[in-house]
Amino acid sequence: MFTVTTLSLLDKELEKIQQALSRLTDEDLWKKPREGMNSAGNLCLHLAGNEYHNIVSSIGGAPYARERSAEFLAAGGFTRREVSERLAAVREKSRSVLTRLSEADLTREVTVQYPPEAGIASSQRQTLELLYHVTVHYAYHTGQILYITRLLQEKDEHLLQWRH
Score class of each variant (00 low, 15 high):
residue 110 V to R: 03
residue 106 L to W: 04
residue 41 G to V: 04
residue 22 S to V: 02
residue 56 V to K: 02
residue 26 D to Q: 01
residue 52 Y to N: 01
residue 111 T to W: 14
residue 59 I to N: 04
residue 61 G to S: 07
residue 88 A to H: 11
residue 86 R to M: 15
residue 105 D to I: 00
residue 33 P to S: 09
residue 20 A to N: 03
residue 93 K to I: 08
residue 22 S to P: 06
residue 94 S to F: 04
residue 53 H to D: 06
residue 51 E to L: 14
residue 70 A to G: 02
residue 102 S to L: 07
residue 105 D to P: 02
residue 37 M to A: 15
residue 33 P to T: 00
residue 24 L to D: 03
residue 74 A to W: 09
residue 42 N to W: 03
residue 32 K to G: 04
residue 71 E to L: 02
residue 87 L to K: 06
residue 80 R to S: 12
residue 22 S to D: 09
residue 76 G to K: 03
residue 28 D to V: 10
residue 26 D to P: 00
residue 29 L to N: 04
residue 95 R to A: 14
residue 31 K to T: 12
residue 108 R to Q: 03
residue 71 E to Q: 03
residue 38 N to G: 08
residue 39 S to H: 06
residue 65 A to M: 11
residue 63 P to F: 12
residue 95 R to P: 10
residue 98 L to E: 02
residue 65 A to R: 13
residue 71 E to M: 06
residue 50 N to W: 11
residue 98 L to Q: 02
residue 59 I to V: 13
residue 104 A to M: 11
residue 48 A to G: 07
residue 111 T to M: 14
residue 41 G to I: 05
residue 79 T to K: 04
residue 108 R to A: 09
residue 58 S to T: 02
residue 24 L to T: 00
residue 62 A to W: 04
residue 77 G to C: 06
residue 94 S to H: 05
residue 31 K to R: 13
residue 60 G to Y: 08
residue 51 E to W: 11
residue 46 H to D: 02
residue 86 R to F: 12
residue 39 S to A: 12
residue 50 N to Y: 10
residue 32 K to L: 09
residue 60 G to F: 09
residue 94 S to N: 10
residue 89 A to S: 13
residue 109 E to D: 15
residue 95 R to K: 13
residue 97 V to L: 11
residue 87 L to W: 06
residue 36 G to V: 07
residue 35 E to F: 13
residue 73 L to S: 14
residue 25 T to K: 01
residue 100 R to V: 01
residue 90 V to Q: 02
residue 91 R to N: 09
residue 58 S to G: 05
residue 66 R to H: 02
residue 40 A to F: 01
residue 39 S to M: 02
residue 26 D to N: 13
residue 72 F to I: 00
residue 72 F to R: 00
residue 50 N to E: 10
residue 77 G to R: 05
residue 58 S to V: 01
residue 87 L to S: 05
residue 55 I to R: 09
residue 78 F to Q: 14
residue 22 S to K: 06
residue 36 G to D: 06
residue 58 S to L: 05
residue 69 S to G: 12
residue 84 S to C: 09
residue 34 R to D: 14
residue 20 A to F: 01
residue 92 E to K: 14
residue 52 Y to K: 00
residue 71 E to D: 12
residue 62 A to R: 01
residue 55 I to K: 04
residue 33 P to R: 04
residue 42 N to A: 08
residue 69 S to T: 15
residue 24 L to G: 05
residue 90 V to Y: 07
residue 57 S to N: 01
residue 109 E to K: 15
residue 69 S to Y: 15
residue 91 R to W: 07
residue 86 R to V: 12
residue 21 L to R: 01
residue 25 T to L: 09
residue 103 E to T: 12
residue 21 L to E: 03
residue 53 H to P: 00
residue 110 V to W: 09
residue 82 E to G: 06
residue 55 I to W: 06
residue 20 A to P: 01
residue 61 G to Y: 05
residue 109 E to Q: 14
residue 110 V to H: 03
residue 32 K to Y: 09
residue 90 V to R: 04
residue 39 S to Y: 07
residue 29 L to C: 07
residue 23 R to A: 13
residue 71 E to A: 11
residue 48 A to I: 06
residue 61 G to A: 10
residue 85 E to W: 10
residue 40 A to L: 10
residue 38 N to A: 11
residue 74 A to Q: 12
residue 23 R to Y: 11
residue 85 E to C: 12
residue 44 C to M: 11
residue 104 A to F: 11
residue 101 L to H: 00
residue 73 L to G: 13
residue 92 E to R: 15
residue 100 R to Q: 13
residue 91 R to F: 12
residue 108 R to H: 04
residue 78 F to D: 13
residue 105 D to F: 00
residue 49 G to F: 09
residue 79 T to I: 06
